[in-house]
């Protein structure tokens, strides 16, 4: 039974359109092309800017706005006595340093990503070049002109077809949110990929993947139903690597995008 199923999938894979990635269960996808994203550590401008805002609010009391407020410590130098890697910086910001005045801070993922990005770019960051977004202006864009709630959901309002954004401000960094708006495919998490299923009895199901194992797949379909399917009951199984979300590069202005990012960063869950 399994052998036949694998054969059917293999045929489908060969016939699949280039935008789709279809594979038998358990068959690894061809290694993706290596993006230059991986060639160096990059800090998105939105993360640096977000980090600067948090730094100003949380860190300047001791470290000063120039990073030299603590004797013997110059954060702008890029040299850290107790941290070599970004992971070290995260650990220190989160846990503090025992026996010193450096306390641990309870930042979420987006905030700590921003702070690290800012610390790494403190000496070159030009505050004048960044116009911070306005969360209050961003909300009506998300709920109105942007049409985001036609697919997404925020605090109980909107659709469940696309991922719920109620906690996106802690789950995603500022840079990731910004890129999601302008290049959604680049930021789509693999687990969220859209799936297209045709069952053995001919039923067509389109939805968003929630979970998958060797023998089954779980998804939420276009009617917001939770569906679990045994792969032995599936005739066609296609995992799309493109996102149905449009880019907002041309439909929102740069200011509007900054406002939307600022608003989404305030969504920290409940």
């Amino acid at each position: 039974m399994r052998r036949h199923l694998l054969a059917a999938w293999t045929v489908l894979w060969a016939a699949a359109p280039s935008a789709a990635q279809t594979a038998p269960p358990g068959t690894p996808a061809a290694p993706p092309a290596i993006s230059t994203e991986f060639a160096r550590v990059e800090y998105a401008p939105a993360d640096i800017a977000y980090g600067a805002r948090i730094y100003d609010a949380q860190c300047t009391t001791c470290h000063g706005s120039n990073g030299d407020g603590v004797g013997g410590v110059d954060l702008r130098s890029g040299r850290f006595r107790n941290a070599a890697s970004d992971q070290d910086l995260v650990r220190i910001v989160t846990n503090g340093i025992t026996g010193t005045g450096m306390l641990g801070f309870k930042f979420d993922g987006a905030e700590v990503s921003g702070i690290v990005a800012y610390l790494r770019n403190m000496n070159t960051f030009d505050r004048g070049s960044v116009k911070p977004g306005d969360a209050a202006r961003g909300r009506p864009i998300v709920e109105g002109k942007g049409g985001c709630l036609r697919c997404h959901r925020i605090s109980g309002a909107g659709s469940r077809v696309a991922p719920d954004l109620t906690d996106v401000g802690s789950a995603r960094s500022a840079g990731s949110i910004q890129r999601s708006l302008t290049d959604p495919v680049s930021q789509m998490m693999p687990i969220n990929r859209p799936v297209h299923v045709v069952t053995r009895d001919g039923k067509v199901i389109n939805g968003r993947r929630l979970n998958e194992d060797t023998y089954t797949v779980q998804l939420i379909d276009e009617q917001e139903r939770l569906v679990s399917l045994a792969k032995t009951e599936i005739r066609e199984f296609t995992i799309l690597s493109t996102s149905p979300m449009p880019s907002f590069s041309n439909t929102l202005t740069a200011d509007e995008l900054a406002d939307v990012v600022a608003y989404l960063l305030t969504l920290k869950g409940r």
Binding site: S176, S186, P190, N211, E212, D213
Partner: peptide, 19 residues
């Protein structure tokens, strides 16, 4: 995808979100 989860080294929950 930048920021996507990698495979946890030791333990995992019941959702395969690295895929």
């Amino acid at each position: 995808v930048p920021g996507a989860p990698g495979v946890p080294g030791l333990r995992r929950g019941p959702i395969n979100n690295w895929t």
